[in-house]
Design a protein around this nucleic acid. Sequence first.
DNA 1: TCTAATACCTGTAGTTACTACAGAATCAAG
DNA 2: CTTGATTCTGTAGTAACTACAGGTATTAGA
Lengths: 149, 149
Amino acid sequence: MHSQETVFPMSIGNLSAASGCSPETIRYYEKQGLLPVAPRTPGGHRMYDEAQYKLLIFILRARQLGFSQPDVRRLMQMANPVRTDCDVVHELASHQLESVQSKIRSLRRLEKTLEELIADCKSGIGARECPMIESMLDDFWPMGPSTGR
Amino acid sequence: MHSQETVFPMSIGNLSAASGCSPETIRYYEKQGLLPVAPRTPGGHRMYDEAQYKLLIFILRARQLGFSQPDVRRLMQMANPVRTDCDVVHELASHQLESVQSKIRSLRRLEKTLEELIADCKSGIGARECPMIESMLDDFWPMGPSTGR
DNA sequence: TCTAATACCTGTAGTTACTACAGAATCAAG
DNA sequence: CTTGATTCTGTAGTAACTACAGGTATTAGA
């Protein structure tokens, strides 16, 4: 009675189940132009095929990585080499790479800080002498107002 | 002539300059109850002393580590002289660390993909060789240059 | 001391990326 | 054909700010 979930074309509910993305968000993406306008049944219900499914997965992955909606639009353009010449792709990709690398750098700093704090904190002291709290209270972090993000 | 920036009590503008946080955000934090209601001058301007300054810095640092507003509230409660245990702080931070690390892993994969894409593109191959992009290259681009809306 | 130029006040509205309804229409199983 | 689950559109709410608008305080200079 089920196991029809991955049969195309599928309804928005099945696409939702298959992708893990809510129907509301799928409709929202269509309205924002991230997803193409879906074809409808005579009654007006949206129908999706595999291409839309793959595109949705791509969008979700990019969003999970912290790319903004405009970023995702740019990424999708790169994936469409048919109407984009190589130079533009190259430029977009380079720009994107830079932003990815800067994201990685800042996350690594964060990771290091969190690791240190967790390590210090682990020697379970129990009271408000928690080293992590103290480090946020005192100012021994080299990130004053001058070193803005 | 200036250099009075770090003299307490200070105005919201000076606190803003000293902390790197905008006046709007400071007022917002007060409204949200993250910062205590500031004492006012007879004319109604907010005045801040060192304790509020330090608290603000604490909040900003916690936010930079990715803690949500409710998280920050919890952290502040723990920083209170009453009684706290380090384990809760530890758990919050560990959770944060995990999510940061998983983001880094994904971004590294994307970085590699983008680097390859750029290299290929340079050698004239084009974006079609990118595995991630190829997976969605089927035919979800039915709308031509006229992106009707 | 008076007066401009700032700085600050409150309150509302906009932002991003969704999420959660409400009320009506459609679809699929029996 | 009926009934209950889905889907439809459109509006409003969320987090965590940011950006005004229109009005009052404060302060530095003449």
